[in-house]
Measured scan of single mutants.
Amino acid sequence: MMAYMNPGPHYSVNALALSGPSVDLMHQAVPYPSAPRKQRRERTTFTRSQLEELEALFAKTQYPDVYAREEVALKINLPESRVQVWFKNRRAKCRQQRQQQKQQQQPPGGQAKARPAKRKAGTSPRPSTDVCPDPLGISDSYSPPLPGPSGSPTTAVATVSIWSPASESPLPEAQRAGLVASGPSLTSAPYAMTYAPASAFCSSPSAYGSPSSYFSGLDPYLSPMVPQLGGPALSPLSGPSVGPSLAQSPTSLSGQSYGAYSPVDSLEFKDPTGTWKFTYNPMDPLDYKDQSAWKFQIL
């Protein structure tokens, strides 16, 4: 009977010793046993002879290597770790002494450095960015050149030099007046198309007034536009458009034309069986010896 009264063996659950049927240790109110408190290391007290050895090595170098620390530790009968900690504390003490010396050398008012006064946003004049500046400075420094007289040679050079070769001289006033084509001369031969040399188009003023001019072949195509416009036809070669000034309004060009419109200028042929003959000019830059190549039959 006494065997049943004795408590059973101890069981360990999660490293906790349980005594038989008792489960009081598993209750929430019972805390787990805490780790033992780490003991504080005792402070090391250095003797005068030990301090002399350490100070002598510190005077040589503030960062001794492990071999120098072990050698000193053997002399003063201390572990190497204590020597390492002593050098660490000695360097910190040396830095603190240097900072105190710097503070003593500075004057009393030198510690508080005078800061520059901050400028207020409204006091300083700042350039306004509302208006974009002129990058080319046209509004201040540029002045347009004065327009020359209508009959000045410089204007003629600016007008005619675009179309004339570089080897030719500017046309005088008398020749510029001949550039304007007359109405009857352009409409006299509506079906004849003559190819003149390129030099005649640039230099010869008579080429624009003769039936064999460069633009005589364009007349049949330009004249039928007159009834559609409801007024006189516009002429690209009329009046002052080739003269001194090219800047004319469309209203000033509306009254200039080749001449009176005639039914002869239409595109319809009077004789459907007729042929169109292209007159060959020996001055043509295209060297075609066979003139029969310039004739064709309209079917």
Rank of each mutant, 00 (worst) to 15 (best):
V66F: 12
S22C: 07
G137R: 09
A156G: 06
S124D: 04
S252G: 01
S199V: 12
P250A: 08
D284W: 14
G243L: 12
Q50F: 15
M2Y: 09
L51S: 14
I138F: 04
D24E: 10
V72N: 15
L74I: 09
A189Q: 04
D287W: 14
K75C: 11
Y4V: 06
S210V: 14
A3H: 03
P127M: 10
L78G: 14
D287H: 12
R98K: 06
P153H: 07
S199R: 10
V72M: 09
D65Y: 15
P263S: 07
P227C: 14
S81N: 04
V85T: 13
Q104A: 04
G231V: 11
S199P: 05
F269M: 00
A189H: 03
L146C: 02
Q248E: 05
T47V: 11
G151N: 05
S161W: 14
S249I: 12
S252F: 11
Y32H: 07
V66M: 04
L74P: 14
T44K: 14
S124K: 11
L246S: 02
P170Q: 11
V85A: 13
P197C: 11
P36E: 03
V157N: 01
D134N: 08
S203R: 11
A73R: 12
T44W: 13
R98P: 08
S235N: 02
S235E: 06
Q228S: 05
T251I: 13
V264R: 11
S241K: 12
D290M: 14
L16E: 00
L25Y: 04
P263R: 14
Q297P: 01
W86P: 15
A174P: 06
W276M: 00
L222P: 00
V13F: 08
Q84M: 03
G122L: 08
S249D: 02
S124Y: 10
T187K: 08
P127D: 09
A29Y: 08
P125S: 09
F269W: 04
Q175N: 05
T129M: 02
P165V: 12
D65G: 12
L78T: 14
Y191A: 00
V226G: 00
Q111G: 05
L136R: 11
T275A: 03
Q99R: 06
M283K: 15
Q291F: 11
G231I: 13
G209P: 02
D219M: 12
A293R: 12
S223N: 02
Y288K: 10
A196V: 15
E168D: 05
Q106Y: 09
K118G: 01
Q84L: 11
M225W: 11
Y63P: 14
L246K: 08
R95P: 14
G122P: 07
G178Q: 05
P149V: 02
Q62Y: 06
S204L: 11
A114Q: 03
Q97Y: 10
L229K: 03
E53K: 12
Y221W: 06
R40Y: 14
D24I: 13
N77G: 04
I298W: 02
V226K: 05
N14A: 12
P36K: 10
T159C: 10
L74H: 07
A174I: 06
D265I: 15
P263C: 11
S152K: 13
L253N: 02
F215P: 01
G231Y: 14
I162V: 01
P7L: 15
L18F: 12
Q103D: 05
A260E: 02
A114S: 03
T187C: 11
Y195F: 10
K118C: 01
R37M: 06
P165H: 03
K102F: 00
N14I: 12
P9D: 00
P147I: 05
G151M: 07
A59M: 09
A114T: 02
V30P: 04
G137P: 02
P79F: 13
L218I: 03
Y32M: 04
L299D: 00
R40W: 12
N6G: 08
S249L: 11
S139G: 04
P107H: 05
R126I: 04
Q291G: 08
S124G: 11
A35I: 08
A73M: 13
S12P: 04
M5N: 02
Y67F: 05
Q103H: 08
A247Q: 07
P9C: 08
T123G: 10
T279I: 14
S266H: 08
W294M: 00
F278V: 04
G109C: 02
K88H: 14
K295L: 13
P263W: 11
Q62D: 07
Q291A: 10
K277F: 12
D265F: 12
S49L: 11
S49V: 09
M5V: 05
T155W: 15
P170S: 10
A121E: 01
L136H: 07
T187Q: 07
P172C: 08
G8P: 03
D219R: 15
P116C: 05
G178Y: 12
D265V: 15
R90G: 13
F269G: 00
P79S: 10
K102C: 04
S182N: 04
G274A: 01
A121F: 06
S22H: 12
Q96C: 05
I138A: 09
P135Q: 08
K295R: 09
Q99L: 07
P9G: 07
A15Q: 01
S143Q: 01
Y208F: 08
P31Q: 08
L222E: 01
V30Y: 10
P144I: 08
L179D: 01
K270M: 10
P149K: 10
T194A: 07
A207P: 06
S216T: 07
L74M: 04
R43V: 15
I162E: 00
P224C: 12
Y67K: 11
A166D: 02
A200Q: 03
I298M: 00
Y67M: 09
P172E: 01
G183Y: 10
P21W: 13
E80G: 07
P220Y: 15
V160D: 00
A17F: 12
T45P: 12
P144L: 08
N281D: 01
G230W: 15
P197S: 06
L146Y: 07
A68Y: 07
T279E: 00
A198L: 14
Y11Q: 00
D140K: 06
G231R: 13
A196Q: 02
D65I: 12
S169Y: 07
P153V: 12
R115M: 01
V30H: 04
A247I: 12
Y208C: 01
G151K: 09
A56V: 08
P135H: 06
P250I: 14
K277R: 10
G209R: 09
A177K: 10
Q99K: 10
C94I: 09
L253D: 01
R41W: 14
Q100A: 08
S150N: 04
G178K: 12
T155F: 15
A121Y: 06
K289W: 11
P7Q: 01
P116S: 08
D265S: 15
Q297A: 12
Y32C: 05
F46Y: 10
Y221H: 02
V157F: 07
G231E: 01
N89G: 14
A207W: 09
T45E: 11
G259F: 14
P125L: 08
K60I: 09
L51H: 13
S254D: 01
S235R: 11
P211K: 14
G183T: 08
D24F: 14
Y258W: 09
L16N: 00
R91W: 14
A29L: 14
G274M: 07
G209C: 04
L16M: 04
Q291H: 09
Q103S: 06
Q97R: 10
G8E: 00
P197Y: 15
R91M: 14
P236H: 10
N6R: 12
K289A: 01
T159P: 01
P21I: 13
T129A: 07
K88G: 13
L136I: 04
